[in-house]
Amino acid sequence: MDKSNLLNVSNLKKTFIKKSGTFLKRKKTEVYAVNNINLEVKKGEILGIIGESGCGKTTTARMIMRLMKETEGEISFEGVNLCNLKDSETNKIRKKMQMIFQDPYDTLNPGMRILDILMEPINAHEKNLPYQAKYQRVVEAIEAIELRPAEDFIHRYPHQLSGGQRQRIAIARAIILKPSFIAADEPTSMLDVSVRAGILNLLLDLRKKMGLTMMFITHDLSTASYMCDRIAVMYQGKIVEIGPTKKIIHKPSHPYTKALVAVVKDLNHFIKNREKLILDGEVDSTKEEKGCPFVSRCPHKEDICHSQVPNLEAIDNGHSVSCHCHTELLERTS
């Protein structure tokens, strides 16, 4: 294991049991929400996780944050294996890793003032601090997220704030304990387009000032390319391609990444090559198929794609892809 990695995830799996049918014909189907993920997050970097809705991004983050138990696999943070910790030990680790959730209208308790909301992390970890010091920390955190003057906001309730302001408060709650790692789960997807850039820049700014390491989850490639040093592309619970942002954008190797890039990059190219690029068909993560998970929607499928699961293979320095045909595809496009 590399010393410069803050977070190491290996062979992480999560299976949900979905019950359906009536009393007599009860069926239990397994949903492979996260299916054997390996990734590492280096100190100081922002790793993007990108993929369509339902591909398992949130589930991955929730397992890393210990909000959900993994079915299988290992997560180590600063060299500590998080999977076998007792609850009290997990709570201690949480001081160093925080999450920003997707929906700012849901993550702030409507009955609590901003002051109480931001006091909560301090009370959880540094209860014995004098009140004045706690208050000062809250004020500093509100100023750090650029809501000024802080005293104007401290006594408000969440419903008196706009969506962007709420998300800023959620960010303040995440950074108030000065964590080393933050997982941001689509922090701008529920916000007005006009305030999104502000939130993204705030996160970049905080990362620079506090030396944060981040996992940034999004379904939007352009946001990911703006924010991230490296990007992992997820599809149906698997990482299909991972590499430096530049490589993912300029030399996408997996057909799924290619489709994502094409949509963002060049609308004309996308329209002309629609048939080759469009993602068709239903996503179904309920069965663990024999072949490539992408095969039903892939425009390039070959025989081997139906029978064998591709592995994530390195094709370049720090750039890996899981596709049987990526060498041929590379030749065809270049």
């Binding site: 949480r94 702030l108 308790n109 009955g111 992390p121 959880a124």
Partner: peptide, 25 residues
């Protein structure tokens, strides 16, 4: 299932506080 309950947990707030501050009201 409210987000703020999950957020409180992810912050490391212990169960008795989650119950009294977020569930009980």
């Amino acid at each position: 299932t409210k987000g703020y309950v999950e957020a409180a947990k992810s912050i490391g707030t212990n169960i008795s506080v989650v119950l009294s501050r977020h569930i009980l009201p």
